[in-house]
Amino acid sequence: MSIEHRDDTGARFGMWLFLYTEVILFSGLFILYAMALAKYPQEFAEASHKLNIYFGTINTIVLLTSSLTIALAITAIQRNKIKQTLTLCIVTIVLAIVFLINKYFEWSAEISHGIYPGSNHMAELGPGITAFFNLYYFTAGLHGVHILIGGTLIGVVAAMVAKGKVTSDRYTLLENSALYWHLVDLVWIFLFPLYYLIL
């Protein structure tokens, strides 16, 4: 019997602690949002109408589904179904890419309408609408960076699963990547109604 230090529960708890700091990071942005909303309720509603609800809805469905596939991947690896685990990881990564492609088209359309921080068009729209879009680009942008990181992480861990370095006996790395991915989903669950659905 080899002597080896191992603490899976500790590793998971460490990941949770890190995710709490991520929540605090995003909650700072949501506080800014709440303050600006309290100050400019009319302008926020007007600005929200300029966002494309279809892009928002499709991306919500994409992210919820990717959260499902990575959750299923954990069950698959626990049951030692390596092929299924890999398929589910790859589907998750593909959904992450779909999300980013959607974001690309969404932002391209908005930018082509002159809606981006610092544009002349934004200056004409006034401070309330400008506050909305600055926060929108920053929050959604930071969220997009998290998608990129999470997707990459899952890709790396999937490669380790394929090589047999992450196994049904030892899969904390996959669990922690999945936890990170779910956090990305959680942020979007709040971001979507707050930015796209204001009346």
């Binding site: 959260s67 959750a71 954990i74 669990e175 936890l179 779910h182 989903d185 959680l186």
Partner: peptide
């Protein structure tokens, strides 16, 4: 929605 994700998806 987030409670469902946290309690079930995130185990």
């Amino acid at each position: 929605k987030s409670s469902l994700v946290v309690f079930i998806f995130m185990h």
